[in-house]
Protein backbone atom coordinates (compact mmCIF):
# COMPACT_ATOMS: atom_id res chain seq x y z
CA UNK A 1 0.00 0.00 0.00
CA UNK A 2 1.17 3.50 -0.74
CA UNK A 3 1.33 5.60 2.40
CA UNK A 4 2.67 8.61 0.58
CA UNK A 5 1.23 9.40 -2.80
CA UNK A 6 4.21 9.49 -5.20
CA UNK A 7 2.57 12.12 -7.39
CA UNK A 8 1.15 14.62 -4.93
CA UNK A 9 3.28 13.76 -1.89
CA UNK A 10 0.19 13.60 0.34
CA UNK A 11 -0.41 10.94 2.95
CA UNK A 12 -3.44 8.65 3.22
CA UNK A 13 -5.42 11.16 5.27
CA UNK A 14 -4.44 14.06 3.03
CA UNK A 15 -1.68 15.53 5.16
CA UNK A 16 1.79 16.49 4.02
CA UNK A 17 4.64 14.38 5.44
CA UNK A 18 5.62 17.05 7.98
CA UNK A 19 2.10 18.06 8.90
CA UNK A 20 0.50 17.35 12.22
CA UNK A 21 -3.07 16.48 12.93
CA UNK A 22 -5.37 19.08 14.38
CA UNK A 23 -4.78 19.72 18.07
CA UNK A 24 -7.42 20.55 20.62
CA UNK A 25 -6.94 21.01 24.34
CA UNK A 26 -9.53 21.72 26.96
CA UNK A 27 -8.82 22.31 30.64
CA UNK A 28 -11.06 21.57 33.61
CA UNK A 29 -13.27 18.82 32.25
CA UNK A 30 -13.55 16.67 35.38
CA UNK A 31 -15.32 18.49 38.19
CA UNK A 32 -14.05 16.48 41.15
CA UNK A 33 -10.41 16.24 40.08
CA UNK A 34 -7.75 18.71 41.19
CA UNK A 35 -6.77 19.15 37.58
CA UNK A 36 -8.06 17.70 34.36
CA UNK A 37 -7.75 18.07 30.63
CA UNK A 38 -9.05 16.71 27.38
CA UNK A 39 -6.57 16.49 24.55
CA UNK A 40 -7.19 15.64 20.93
CA UNK A 41 -4.73 14.95 18.17
CA UNK A 42 -6.91 14.41 15.14
CA UNK A 43 -9.10 11.45 15.95
CA UNK A 44 -7.06 10.41 18.97
CA UNK A 45 -8.87 11.71 22.01
CA UNK A 46 -7.60 11.38 25.56
CA UNK A 47 -8.85 12.56 28.93
CA UNK A 48 -6.50 13.07 31.88
CA UNK A 49 -7.35 13.67 35.54
CA UNK A 50 -4.89 14.57 38.27
CA UNK A 51 -5.58 14.03 41.95
CA UNK A 52 -3.18 15.44 44.44
CA UNK A 53 -0.79 16.21 45.93
CA UNK A 54 -2.60 14.27 48.62
CA UNK A 55 -1.79 12.06 51.57
CA UNK A 56 0.01 8.85 50.61
CA UNK A 57 -2.59 6.10 50.57
CA UNK A 58 -0.32 3.11 50.56
CA UNK A 59 2.64 3.89 52.77
CA UNK A 60 4.50 0.86 51.42
CA UNK A 61 4.82 2.45 47.99
CA UNK A 62 6.55 5.52 49.34
CA UNK A 63 10.25 5.23 48.65
CA UNK A 64 11.43 8.62 49.79
CA UNK A 65 9.30 10.66 52.15
CA UNK A 66 11.05 13.88 51.11
CA UNK A 67 9.57 13.64 47.67
CA UNK A 68 6.11 13.29 46.26
CA UNK A 69 5.16 9.91 44.89
CA UNK A 70 3.90 10.05 41.33
CA UNK A 71 1.56 7.36 40.11
CA UNK A 72 0.03 6.93 36.73
CA UNK A 73 -2.65 4.76 35.26
CA UNK A 74 -3.22 4.46 31.54
CA UNK A 75 -6.35 2.81 30.26
CA UNK A 76 -8.00 2.40 26.96
CA UNK A 77 -11.75 2.57 26.90
CA UNK A 78 -13.41 -0.52 25.45
CA UNK A 79 -15.00 1.59 22.78
CA UNK A 80 -11.84 3.43 21.82
CA UNK A 81 -10.74 1.08 19.04
CA UNK A 82 -12.45 -0.15 15.93
CA UNK A 83 -12.96 -3.69 17.09
CA UNK A 84 -14.27 -4.07 20.58
CA UNK A 85 -11.69 -6.30 22.17
CA UNK A 86 -11.79 -7.25 25.79
CA UNK A 87 -8.65 -5.90 27.46
CA UNK A 88 -8.10 -6.86 31.05
CA UNK A 89 -6.98 -4.04 33.31
CA UNK A 90 -3.56 -5.48 33.94
CA UNK A 91 -2.54 -6.05 30.36
CA UNK A 92 1.09 -5.58 29.53
CA UNK A 93 0.72 -2.82 27.00
CA UNK A 94 -1.18 -0.61 29.45
CA UNK A 95 1.30 -1.33 32.22
CA UNK A 96 4.18 -0.37 29.99
CA UNK A 97 2.58 2.85 28.81
CA UNK A 98 1.61 3.74 32.40
CA UNK A 99 5.24 3.37 33.38
CA UNK A 100 6.44 5.42 30.42
CA UNK A 101 4.03 8.25 31.17
CA UNK A 102 4.89 8.19 34.86
CA UNK A 103 8.61 8.43 34.20
CA UNK A 104 8.17 11.18 31.66
CA UNK A 105 6.03 13.28 33.95
CA UNK A 106 8.20 12.62 36.98
CA UNK A 107 11.15 14.15 35.12
CA UNK A 108 9.30 17.41 35.02
CA UNK A 109 7.40 17.55 38.32
CA UNK A 110 9.30 19.22 41.15
CA UNK A 111 8.60 16.37 43.54
CA UNK A 112 10.86 17.69 46.28
CA UNK A 113 8.46 20.58 46.88
CA UNK A 114 5.68 18.26 47.96
CA UNK A 115 7.06 15.91 50.57
CA UNK A 116 4.93 13.18 52.13
CA UNK A 117 2.34 13.26 49.42
CA UNK A 118 1.32 11.50 46.27
CA UNK A 119 0.11 12.62 42.88
CA UNK A 120 -2.17 10.39 40.87
CA UNK A 121 -2.48 10.81 37.14
CA UNK A 122 -5.25 8.92 35.40
CA UNK A 123 -5.29 8.95 31.64
CA UNK A 124 -8.05 7.35 29.68
CA UNK A 125 -8.08 6.91 25.92
CA UNK A 126 -11.52 7.68 24.57
CA UNK A 127 -10.68 7.31 20.91
CA UNK A 128 -7.54 5.61 19.66
CA UNK A 129 -6.14 6.56 16.29
CA UNK A 130 -2.41 6.18 16.73
CA UNK A 131 -0.08 8.12 18.98
CA UNK A 132 -2.06 7.50 22.14
CA UNK A 133 0.94 7.68 24.42
CA UNK A 134 1.93 11.04 22.99
CA UNK A 135 -1.58 12.34 23.42
CA UNK A 136 -1.66 11.00 26.98
CA UNK A 137 1.57 12.80 27.90
CA UNK A 138 0.28 16.05 26.44
CA UNK A 139 -3.03 15.70 28.27
CA UNK A 140 -1.23 14.88 31.52
CA UNK A 141 0.90 18.03 31.20
CA UNK A 142 -2.19 20.18 30.81
CA UNK A 143 -3.92 18.48 33.72
CA UNK A 144 -0.89 18.85 36.00
CA UNK A 145 -0.65 22.54 35.18
CA UNK A 146 -4.36 22.88 35.92
CA UNK A 147 -3.86 21.18 39.27
CA UNK A 148 -1.24 23.78 40.18
CA UNK A 149 1.57 21.28 40.52
CA UNK A 150 5.01 22.88 40.11
CA UNK A 151 6.88 21.68 37.05
CA UNK A 152 10.33 22.36 35.66
CA UNK A 153 9.08 22.72 32.16
CA UNK A 154 6.30 21.72 29.81
CA UNK A 155 6.60 18.13 28.70
CA UNK A 156 5.23 17.37 25.28
CA UNK A 157 5.40 14.33 23.14
CA UNK A 158 4.95 13.54 19.49
CA UNK A 159 5.62 10.57 17.27
CA UNK A 160 7.19 10.31 13.85
CA UNK A 161 7.71 7.41 11.49
CA UNK A 162 9.42 6.40 8.32
CA UNK A 163 7.35 5.00 5.49
CA UNK A 164 7.89 4.95 1.71
CA UNK A 165 11.37 6.42 2.39
CA UNK A 166 9.75 9.58 3.77
CA UNK A 167 9.86 10.75 7.40
CA UNK A 168 6.25 11.25 8.53
CA UNK A 169 5.13 13.34 11.48
CA UNK A 170 2.40 12.27 13.91
CA UNK A 171 1.36 8.86 12.61
CA UNK A 172 -2.26 7.82 12.64
CA UNK A 173 -3.46 4.28 13.26
CA UNK A 174 -3.21 3.23 9.63
CA UNK A 175 0.38 4.42 9.29
CA UNK A 176 1.27 3.12 12.73
CA UNK A 177 0.20 -0.39 11.87
CA UNK A 178 1.96 -0.35 8.51
CA UNK A 179 4.99 -2.00 10.02
CA UNK A 180 7.46 0.82 9.51
CA UNK A 181 9.41 2.20 12.40
CA UNK A 182 7.71 4.53 14.87
CA UNK A 183 9.68 6.95 17.01
CA UNK A 184 7.97 8.56 20.00
CA UNK A 185 9.83 11.47 21.54
CA UNK A 186 9.02 13.40 24.69
CA UNK A 187 10.88 16.61 25.43
CA UNK A 188 11.06 19.37 27.99
CA UNK A 189 10.14 22.06 25.53
CA UNK A 190 12.02 25.11 26.82
CA UNK A 191 15.03 23.32 28.22
CA UNK A 192 15.48 21.21 25.10
CA UNK A 193 15.93 17.99 26.97
CA UNK A 194 14.65 14.61 25.93
CA UNK A 195 12.72 12.72 28.58
CA UNK A 196 11.26 9.97 26.45
CA UNK A 197 12.54 8.18 23.38
CA UNK A 198 10.98 4.98 22.14
CA UNK A 199 11.29 3.25 18.79
CA UNK A 200 9.65 0.22 17.26
CA UNK A 201 11.55 -1.59 14.51
CA UNK A 202 14.87 -0.49 13.10
CA UNK A 203 16.14 2.54 11.25
CA UNK A 204 19.51 3.44 9.75
CA UNK A 205 21.44 5.92 11.85
CA UNK A 206 21.16 8.92 9.52
CA UNK A 207 17.44 8.42 8.85
CA UNK A 208 16.81 8.06 12.55
CA UNK A 209 18.26 11.48 13.15
CA UNK A 210 15.95 13.00 10.55
CA UNK A 211 12.91 11.25 11.95
CA UNK A 212 13.75 12.22 15.51
CA UNK A 213 14.38 15.80 14.45
CA UNK A 214 10.94 15.84 12.87
CA UNK A 215 9.35 14.46 16.04
CA UNK A 216 11.10 17.13 18.13
CA UNK A 217 9.77 19.82 15.82
CA UNK A 218 6.32 18.36 16.39
CA UNK A 219 6.83 18.43 20.16
CA UNK A 220 7.72 22.10 20.03
CA UNK A 221 4.65 22.92 18.00
CA UNK A 222 2.53 21.08 20.57
CA UNK A 223 4.30 22.90 23.39
CA UNK A 224 3.36 26.28 22.01
CA UNK A 225 -0.23 25.12 21.60
CA UNK A 226 -0.39 23.76 25.14
CA UNK A 227 1.02 26.96 26.53
CA UNK A 228 -1.67 28.86 24.69
CA UNK A 229 -4.34 26.63 26.27
CA UNK A 230 -2.90 27.25 29.74
CA UNK A 231 -2.70 30.96 29.14
CA UNK A 232 -6.35 31.21 28.13
CA UNK A 233 -7.49 29.18 31.12
CA UNK A 234 -5.27 31.19 33.43
CA UNK A 235 -6.61 34.50 32.22
CA UNK A 236 -10.21 33.36 32.39
CA UNK A 237 -9.84 32.31 36.00
CA UNK A 238 -7.83 35.27 37.22
CA UNK A 239 -9.86 37.94 35.48
CA UNK A 240 -13.22 36.66 36.58
CA UNK A 241 -12.25 35.93 40.17
CA UNK A 242 -10.68 39.26 41.04
CA UNK A 243 -13.26 41.73 42.21
CA UNK A 244 -12.14 45.07 40.83
CA UNK A 245 -12.77 47.07 43.90
CA UNK A 246 -12.97 44.88 46.93
CA UNK A 247 -9.23 44.68 47.51
CA UNK A 248 -8.76 48.40 47.62
CA UNK A 249 -11.05 49.04 50.58
CA UNK A 250 -9.15 50.93 53.27
CA UNK A 251 -7.79 49.06 56.24
CA UNK A 252 -9.61 49.80 59.42
CA UNK A 253 -6.53 50.63 61.41
CA UNK A 254 -6.48 51.12 65.11
CA UNK A 255 -5.00 54.37 66.18
CA UNK A 256 -1.37 54.20 66.98
CA UNK A 257 -1.72 55.16 70.61
CA UNK A 258 -4.34 52.51 71.07
CA UNK A 259 -1.92 49.94 69.83
CA UNK A 260 0.80 51.34 72.03
CA UNK A 261 -1.33 51.04 75.09
CA UNK A 262 -2.46 47.57 74.19
CA UNK A 263 1.00 46.27 73.47
CA UNK A 264 2.31 48.01 76.55
CA UNK A 265 -0.22 46.25 78.73
CA UNK A 266 0.72 42.86 77.44
CA UNK A 267 4.42 43.56 77.64
CA UNK A 268 4.22 44.81 81.22
CA UNK A 269 2.10 41.87 82.15
CA UNK A 270 4.54 39.45 80.61
CA UNK A 271 7.46 41.25 82.18
CA UNK A 272 5.74 40.93 85.51
CA UNK A 273 5.48 37.23 85.03
CA UNK A 274 9.18 37.15 84.32
CA UNK A 275 8.65 35.88 80.81
CA UNK A 276 10.81 38.42 79.06
CA UNK A 277 14.51 37.89 79.24
CA UNK A 278 15.44 41.52 78.90
CA UNK A 279 13.82 44.72 80.10
CA UNK A 280 11.69 46.29 77.46
CA UNK A 281 12.16 49.69 76.01
CA UNK A 282 10.28 51.74 73.47
CA UNK A 283 11.77 52.78 70.23
CA UNK A 284 10.72 56.29 69.49
CA UNK A 285 10.02 56.94 65.87
CA UNK A 286 7.60 58.56 63.53
CA UNK A 287 5.24 55.63 63.74
CA UNK A 288 5.43 55.44 67.49
CA UNK A 289 6.12 51.76 67.81
CA UNK A 290 8.35 49.26 66.20
CA UNK A 291 7.31 45.69 65.92
CA UNK A 292 10.17 43.34 66.52
CA UNK A 293 11.17 41.02 63.72
CA UNK A 294 10.35 37.35 64.16
CA UNK A 295 13.90 36.35 64.99
CA UNK A 296 13.99 38.54 68.06
CA UNK A 297 10.82 37.17 69.56
CA UNK A 298 11.49 35.37 72.83
CA UNK A 299 11.06 31.64 72.58
CA UNK A 300 8.35 31.35 75.15
CA UNK A 301 5.98 33.92 73.72
CA UNK A 302 3.06 32.58 71.76
CA UNK A 303 3.29 32.88 68.02
CA UNK A 304 0.56 35.45 67.57
CA UNK A 305 2.10 37.87 70.01
CA UNK A 306 4.59 40.42 68.80
CA UNK A 307 6.14 42.43 71.58
CA UNK A 308 8.02 45.66 71.40
CA UNK A 309 11.27 46.75 72.93
Amino acid sequence: MEYVNPLTGFRVDGRRPNEMRQLKGEVGVVARADGSALFEMGNTRVIAAVYGPREVQNKGQQVNSNEALVRCEYRMAEFSTGDRRRKPKGDRRSTEISLVIRQTMEASILTHLMPRSQIDIYVQVLQADGGTRSACINAATLALADAGIPMRDIVTSCSAGYLCSTPLLDLNYLEDSAGGSDVTVGILAKMDKVTLLQMDAKLPMDTFENVMGLAIEGCKAIASYIQECMQINDLNLSKIAVPTMDITQPLKSLTCCGWMAFVHCIAVHRNFLGLLERPMEYVEGPVGLLLSPKSRRPQNSPSHFVGIW
Binding site: A145, I154, A189, Q227, N236
Partner: peptide
Amino acid sequence: ALHELQSLAPAAASAAAVTVAD
Protein backbone atom coordinates in the same frame (compact mmCIF):
# COMPACT_ATOMS: atom_id res chain seq x y z
CA ALA B 1 -21.57 38.84 30.69
CA LEU B 2 -18.31 36.89 30.93
CA HIS B 3 -16.81 39.04 28.21
CA GLU B 4 -17.75 42.15 30.12
CA LEU B 5 -16.31 40.75 33.34
CA GLN B 6 -13.03 40.08 31.58
CA SER B 7 -12.91 43.50 30.06
CA LEU B 8 -13.55 45.06 33.48
CA ALA B 9 -10.56 43.30 35.03
CA PRO B 10 -7.59 45.60 35.54
CA ALA B 11 -5.22 45.61 32.62
CA ALA B 12 -2.39 44.59 34.91
CA ALA B 13 -4.07 41.20 35.40
CA SER B 14 -3.37 40.03 31.88
CA ALA B 15 0.21 41.26 32.00
CA ALA B 16 0.91 39.40 35.22
CA ALA B 17 -0.47 36.04 34.11
CA VAL B 18 2.19 33.41 33.49
CA THR B 19 2.18 29.75 32.59
CA VAL B 20 4.65 26.98 33.26
CA ALA B 21 8.09 27.66 31.76
CA ASP B 22 7.37 31.32 31.07
